[in-house]
Design a protein around this nucleic acid. Sequence first.
DNA 1: TATTAACACGAAACCGTTTTCGTAGTTCTT
DNA 2: AAGAACTACGAAAACGGTTTCGTGTTAATA
Lengths: 346, 346
Amino acid sequence: MHFILKRKITLKHIARELEVSISTVSKALKNSEEISRDTKEKVQAFAKLYNYRPNNIAISLKNKRTRNIGVIIPDIVHHFFTTVFRGIEKYANSRGYNVIICVSDESFDKEVINMEMLANGSIDGFIMSLSAETQQKNDFNHLKEVTEQGIPLVLFDRVTDEIECDKVIINDKEIAYQAVKKLIDSGKRKIALVTTDSYFNVSKKRAEGYKAALKDNGITFEENYVLTLPYQEIEKSKIEHFFSENDIDGVLCVNEVFAIHCIGAVQKLGMKIPDEVSIIGFTDGLLSKYSVPSLTTVAQHGERMGEVAAEMLIEKVESEIEDDENETFRTETIKATIIERESTKN
Amino acid sequence: MHFILKRKITLKHIARELEVSISTVSKALKNSEEISRDTKEKVQAFAKLYNYRPNNIAISLKNKRTRNIGVIIPDIVHHFFTTVFRGIEKYANSRGYNVIICVSDESFDKEVINMEMLANGSIDGFIMSLSAETQQKNDFNHLKEVTEQGIPLVLFDRVTDEIECDKVIINDKEIAYQAVKKLIDSGKRKIALVTTDSYFNVSKKRAEGYKAALKDNGITFEENYVLTLPYQEIEKSKIEHFFSENDIDGVLCVNEVFAIHCIGAVQKLGMKIPDEVSIIGFTDGLLSKYSVPSLTTVAQHGERMGEVAAEMLIEKVESEIEDDENETFRTETIKATIIERESTKN
DNA sequence: TATTAACACGAAACCGTTTTCGTAGTTCTT
DNA sequence: AAGAACTACGAAAACGGTTTCGTGTTAATA
């Protein structure tokens, strides 16, 4: 076995070979008016023959623009985040950007480290969703530093009011309201909320919608009807206990996995879905689609969210106005929709 | 609102401010022996105060090493790939590498474009899994070019013999054999294979294991018992038809979604799982865990696969031997395991 | 024919580092 | 006191491009 390494060819090589200057080569390849037709053809032919490609790193250094976007998300093995990521990747790619992804693993420290790693020239801007720990600690100095350096930042889904930047969220409160309204309209009155700890801003918003819907329909909110579950390591017994102790006929879950667990618990207790208990979840993933019964759920349109986030970021990146003074930040809201399946009746 | 942009500070700034040369600053920050204690302290203090961080791009250009890994996968909203990716990301990060990810979307052209985009200096090496279309076309010139340029490449799961490089696969044939054996041992004889088109090398391997297990147990292979499904857009009716036309008592599916569909079809036909029909799938995702009945499945240990791939790549990247002559490539096999759940009996 | 304009190209600076090498100025030898 | 040996630093090249500006040659103009 004998490989000939076709090492990357540079302008310098071409220049030397063709006995012209580097500048001439550079211009010739850009089809500059300055260069004679003859020379251009010669250079271009040579470049093509040896498959010349400009070195991205050199261009990045010169332009102070990498065409890389940094994405920091709490988890990658998670349907919602992957859909958002797909949206980001697609849009970014269509605009000639690459995506560097880092996973914070819900850890504050990792989030900080990842940001610092990328903030030193590797990327032109960040798109991120806050880790659980960051939201808990309420410490956003790493974000502040980055924005103060003039690096554009777009936050999605798990955002914070503490930082001024572009944001993309869904209408969590509203859609939770609608979901609960839907349960009420189908005759349910004893509606539970299965949620995570409230330092997740999305959970908080969804709880608000839940409460508002109850109130507007003359149902008094009962603390007992709220089941708070850890984000991971769910105990089935706790859920079963919840449903056997309380007389529930409708459930809103803040995610898909919780909803599946509820289906299991409810069925185990011998109750029929949706007739005796109706269930609505969040996140339209495979689980919702393929569970039996299939799950009525809130589609968050993650891909759209990703696209919008990427678009906002690239806009900021490319508008080199650096207008400092009257820089303006937007918050885009993606309208979630309810996908009706078998776990509810209408 | 008035922001003061703390623009990134460079060696040049420090040098100017402290009235020393750039080289002195550089050395001082590296604690070089060459520089006097006084100067070092002065420089280091200044750098710390202004939060100096070296520019990654400049360092990359100088060192001709980016500490970036390029990952190209067919799909991101896919449990197996995300787990592999998590493994890659974790390991890479622990070694100080960042990961740039591109999605080929099962398209040959996108795969090529993405490779070219990254191959011009943006990354030190590739980890990838071939797109469906690439496997179909059997065209691997883009891979060949990259390896010929001396860029390390590690292929995982969807690999090809046409390219000499490091590879990470699972023991597809073996584990399929074991899965079928398990069905046979539990008394099943009329075992179906639900698979994709055979240009997927993994499907081919699994089919081989399936056939070998039948043969070794004196069961004749029947073409009728193989159901080939498209990768997407599955028609339920086709599956139901398959199960009503054939007298099946065991099923091996090459993925989770196929398995879930089979559960649905079998149940619709009024047959009991696992007593009348046992089902085993591939990919241990949420669906397998939460379906009813839960699914016995082949765990591919994607995260481990990713770790191994990343480790192999980084080893190659960092061994600058460029030994050309006797460069040696490995193929690591991750041992898949069968996770027993309710869809089979023993 | 002298002047000017157009043409075609090269030198050099620049992006932000690292690193080699050269050299003032000081201290140590003998 | 002269040479050797340090010490502490700076100049410059290099990584691979882009871009501005200057200039020698030729062609057009007066």
